[in-house]
């Protein structure tokens, strides 16, 4: 799994708007790859996950309940959404991605395709 820059792959105007890059953890074990991404402020229905060919896009739109007439005096999160793009490798089974989203943390599991699972090869000694 490697990262590609969103700008070089997508010409779509929507994807060129400024977004935050969510911090991620990517862990690989024999069963596949697990990705955690921090996207606080994104409700479940504004989360966007997309697998297109070998490209995985995670993103979402921030929706905060802000009282009417609020003026911001200090903002560290000043963009309305998140987006990050990854390239999946051949041995991953993109059809079987499972996702959970809890308290602003996305957990994605991409299993390894059956044929690519590590096998132990018995060595015969005469």
């Amino acid at each position: 799994m490697s990262e590609t820059s969103a700008a070089s792959k997508n010409t779509d105007a929507r994807r060129n708007e400024a977004v935050l890059l969510p911090p991620v953890d990517v862990i690989e074990d024999p069963s596949g790859i697990t990705l955690y991404a921090d996207m606080p402020g994104v409700p479940k229905d504004k989360l966007e996950l997309e697998v297109e060919g070998d490209t995985l896009t995670i993103g979402g739109t921030v929706a905060l309940t802000v009282p009417q007439g609020m003026e911001a005096s200090h903002a560290e999160v000043s963009l309305p959404g998140y987006r990050r793009v990854f390239t999946l490798s051949k041995e991953l089974d993109a059809d079987k991605v499972s996702a959970e989203f809890n308290h602003g943390v996305l957990r994605l599991h991409i299993p390894r395709a059956e044929h690519a699972k590590p096998r132990r090869i018995a060595v015969q000694v005469d």
């Binding site: 911090p23 921090d38 996207m39 606080p40 402020g41 905060l64 802000v66 009282p67 009417q68 007439g69 609020m70 003026e71 911001a72 005096s73 200090h74 903002a75 560290e76 999160v77 000043s78 809890n102 308290h103 602003g104 943390v105």
Partner: peptide
């Protein structure tokens, strides 16, 4: 210099009646 890397990121704002603080602290 806390745009990235500070956890949690903070946004602070106010109305004439209230002060509002938003801490972006996912996964707690």
């Amino acid at each position: 210099g806390l745009g990235r890397g500070g956890y949690p990121a903070l946004n602070v704002g106010g109305t004439p009646q209230t002060v509002e603080i938003y801490a972006f602290a996912p996964g707690l």
